[in-house]
Design a protein around this nucleic acid. Structure first.
Length: 193
DNA sequence: CGATTTTGACCTGCGC
DNA sequence: GCGCAGGTCAAAATCG
């Protein structure tokens, strides 16, 4: 069925607060609605039923209906786990059930690919049943980062793109850093006076 | 020439 | 056990 296409349109939930428990780069501009990085996005929508608190704290979700989001039990995303995990998998196919957090949101956009500040490499595209449009698979190009995302346009409402993120970035957003670095330098310079 | 995209083959999980 | 659907790999093509 087209589970992803039956997503209700609800206002985005409150954004999670970063605490000392959370990885420093857990939520980046990619998840911030109305981010200035996304001029083309008119109506960002975070999927409902996402247990942000659980997601962040490592506890499992509460929602009963989770159209896209999988269980949010957090696996150690950083460091050794990812590289070694990759060795277990053979060519193609699903590996062990992903236990990494997944979250998705809809955006109303003419572009399938929205610029979320990270660099992504496309590694696959697949036609999906009950959908006119193919689903595209992307992986974060950062060496140590194993985050993936899927992008799919709804066939019911072709102006809506569903983006599903899987995993958590363990590095800063490049674009954000590019923007902030000169500002920081300038501030440091001015602070000397 | 390195990085990225395209695309068909391959693999796995799941329902029947 | 079989077939389908989804997810990934990797070689070739394309791009900057």
């Amino acid at each position: 069925m087209d589970g992803q296409e039956a997503l209700p349109s609800l206002p985005p939930p409150p954004l999670p607060q970063l605490t000392s428990q959370n990885p420093p780069y857990l939520f980046t501009p990619s998840l911030l609605p109305s981010s200035s990085l996304h001029p083309s996005i008119i109506e960002p929508q975070v999927l409902p039923d996402i247990d942000w608190v659980g997601l962040l704290s490592g506890q499992s979700g509460l929602g009963e209906n989770r159209p896209i989001m999988e269980s949010a039990s957090m696996v150690a995303e950083n460091g050794a786990e990812e590289e070694k995990g990759n060795k277990d998998k053979k060519k193609g196919g699903r590996m062990k059930k992903a236990t990494r957090p997944r979250f998705a949101f809809q955006t109303r956009s003419a572009d399938d690919i929205l610029d979320d500040g990270f660099r992504w490499r496309k590694y696959g595209q697949k036609a999906v049943k009950n959908s006119k449009y193919p689903r595209s698979y992307y992986r974060c190009t950062h060496h140590t980062c194993n985050v993936k995302k899927q992008v799919q346009r709804l066939s019911k409402d072709t102006s809506i793109v569903v983006t599903t993120y899987e995993g958590i970035h363990n590095h800063p957003c490049e674009k954000l850093m590019e923007t902030l670095t000169p500002l920081l330098k300038q501030m440091q310079f001015l602070a000397r006076f």
